[in-house]
Design a protein around this nucleic acid. Structure first.
Lengths: 160, 160
DNA sequence: TATGAAAAGATAATCCC
DNA sequence: GGGATTATCTTTTCATA
């Protein structure tokens, strides 16, 4: 029974989207509640799946991933089992951070990180092009990161 | 003095990339340390910026964001101040989750979420196309999410 | 049904070795 | 790095509105 979220829930969520290391007491104070109800709200949002995970965001550059690409993939038609196999393999490649089927010219969009150009070139030929159904890959290399967040806006606003 | 990370640091990081709600004791046990040194390692990785943030990941669909797009933007040449203005405005639009300058045909790549098609259409014309330098927008709508993670691989592996 | 106060339990943070 | 201590926070209980 996924109950709706009220304004206070959204305030809590928003704070936790920015910093999940805040204590319940701290959060409670900022939204004008005492600890217990605040804690129960968080608990409920976890149980009901509004909160999917709590993670640390690392600095990929410091960890040696100097490149990030969006790869657009053209696929052949796949059977059900081939498709399942494709998904399973994608999930097993940690350098692929995101994978979506998309509308448009191409069929699949990937977000990939790599240590350097050599690695990526090797990755495309030795890994990506060997996945089931992969016909063609077009890569878009990112240069400057002007914004990167996992925080979803609290409520839909009208475009200005 | 950003010291290098050893194998144990990377193990800790990896666990925290999957679940940052694990206690220090729990993490310590899993990597074969006692609490104190494990805590100190985490602290150090925060201070040195390996860990950039700790956040909750929310379910965007449950929060009403039923659409996700990658928008490729063609820009005109911008002056320094126009460019700064562009970045500032991008950062102020919460539905834009990511923004990169890219190599290739187009100049900028955006990751955007929206509640519905109507909102997005309105957003493009009333917001995006009015940003400084924006000449043309090409959108790629995502359909099925086959993978989505923020976790960076521990160490570079050779492509197979 | 939801809140707040307070107790009990667990964890984080600091100490010294 | 480990062990022990203290401070802080989380989680449960309970009384109340």
């Amino acid at each position: 029974m996924p109950s709706e979220l009220d304004t206070i829930d959204l305030k809590i969520l928003n704070l936790m989207q920015q910093d999940a290391s805040l204590s319940t007491a701290e959060l409670a104070e900022r939204v004008g509640l005492s600890q217990s109800p605040c804690w129960r709200r968080i608990q409920r949002m976890r149980e009901e799946g509004y909160i999917k995970a709590q993670v640390v965001i690392v600095d990929r550059l410091k960890l040696g991933y100097h490149m990030q690409m969006f790869a657009q993939v053209k696929m052949t038609r796949l059977s059900e089992s081939e498709r399942a196999d494709f998904v399973r393999q994608i999930q097993g490649i940690p350098e692929i951070l995101e994978c979506y089927t998309v509308f448009g010219e191409m069929d699949v969009m990937l977000k990939i990180i790599a240590p350097d150009v050599m690695w990526y070139q090797e990755f495309i030929f030795s890994t990506l092009l060997k996945l089931p159904g992969v016909q063609d890959v077009r890569s878009i290399v990112t240069l400057v990161e002007m914004k990167s967040t996992t925080a979803v806006p609290l409520k839909t606003r009208k475009p200005r």
